[in-house]
Design a binder for these strands. Structure first.
Length: 268
RNA sequence: GGGGAAGUCGCAUAGUGGCAAUUGCAACAGACUGUAAAUCUGUCCUCUUCGGAGUUCAGUGGUUCGAGUCCACUCUUCCCCA
């Protein structure tokens, strides 16, 4: 999953210097990952980097993955509990939803839409009750959150450019190879964006032009949702220092370094 | 040149006399601590003290208590025959 996931490995080699990176290629294609696992992987890498006296930089990822670290989500290491699931079989979705509502405030439908998700959400809550101390150790850290901001129109143009590059760069072939190697179709469909749309195209469910148009639209909407998330982070008290993306590369680097050198109090 | 069909809020679509006007997409705003590259919600002619108010359905005129809907002409687009 090199192209569709945007590994951008070439970016880790700059002016003759290799920039070390972590958490790329840590699982096989098709593996089902989640925020809890990410936090653990992040903490391991963070501790390792800090122990060696270096500066960790968390780059990219969705708003929620960044936030999980910055806010220090308290996620319990709740294992799948076959016994519990067996006992829950007797209850209807409505009863289970009511039960879940007794534990947490139901935010939207994502926890209650499918029985699988409902059971998992309950499983986690039951586990928390029994193991109130089962949270991962989150190391103390200070963070400086920096975002690169482009005008909306520029973002849209860049998305189109990147999409065309990926398609010409072998993305169709990449998805085909994944399917051929046995990664389940449902898995790819659930990854969303590139993997979802290209899989649908390869399965003959839409024309190439339809695939391109719908994928382009979905990426635009995704980028919009990311901005919604970042605005929410700021509203919740996490300042994001926005850098003008249209500046020359060196100026952007300088802007970040300037922020980094400033004491917290002097930053806006 | 002759015949036929059609022009509705960004695009596409409903609507045959009581409508600010259907639905989808896009757009915009928002929710979201365990699949999140996912999932879901709201707004979407203008103004609003959220009670309403004012302008709309290519254009002009007409019929009618009332017109997106009927009539006439004009403009534009598409199809068929030459």
């Amino acid at each position: 999953m090199d192209i569709g996931s945007g590994k951008d490995l070439a970016d880790y080699h700059l002016h003759g210097t290799d920039i070390p990176y972590h958490l790329i290629d840590i699982h096989d294609a098709g593996y089902e990952y989640n925020v809890y696992q990410f936090m653990n992987d992040f903490i391991r890498a963070f501790d390792d980097i800090v122990r060696r006296g270096r500066q960790p930089i968390l780059c990219g990822g969705t708003g929620m993955y960044v936030e999980s670290v910055v806010k220090g989500y308290q996620l319990a290491d709740a294992p799948v509990d076959p016994d519990f699931r067996h006992r829950m079989e007797a209850f209807s979705d409505e009863e289970l939803t009511a039960r879940l509502a007794g534990y947490i405030k139901l935010h939207n439908h994502t926890d209650t839409e499918t029985r699988d998700r409902l059971l998992r959400a309950l499983e986690i809550q039951e586990y928390r009750l029994q193991h109130p101390d089962a949270y991962p150790h989150i190391p103390p850290m200070q963070h400086l959150v920096v975002g690169v901001l482009y005008p909306r129109q520029t973002v849209i143009e860049r998305i189109g450019l990147r999409l065309r590059e990926r398609l010409q760069g072998g993305m169709i072939e990449e998805v085909k190879a994944l399917l051929d190697s046995g990664v389940p179709e449902e898995r790819l469909l659930r990854y969303g964006l590139e993997y979802r749309h290209v899989t649908q195209y390869l399965r003959g469910q839409c024309s190439y032009d339809d695939m391109y148009r719908d994928l382009y639209t979905d990426i635009r909407r995704f980028s919009k949702r990311q901005m919604t998330w970042f605005r929410r982070m700021e509203r919740q008290g996490i300042p994001i220092h926005w850098i003008d993306g249209t500046l020359p590369f060196a100026d952007k680097v300088e802007a970040v370094l300037r922020l980094f050198r400033q004491p917290d109090a002097e930053r806006e």
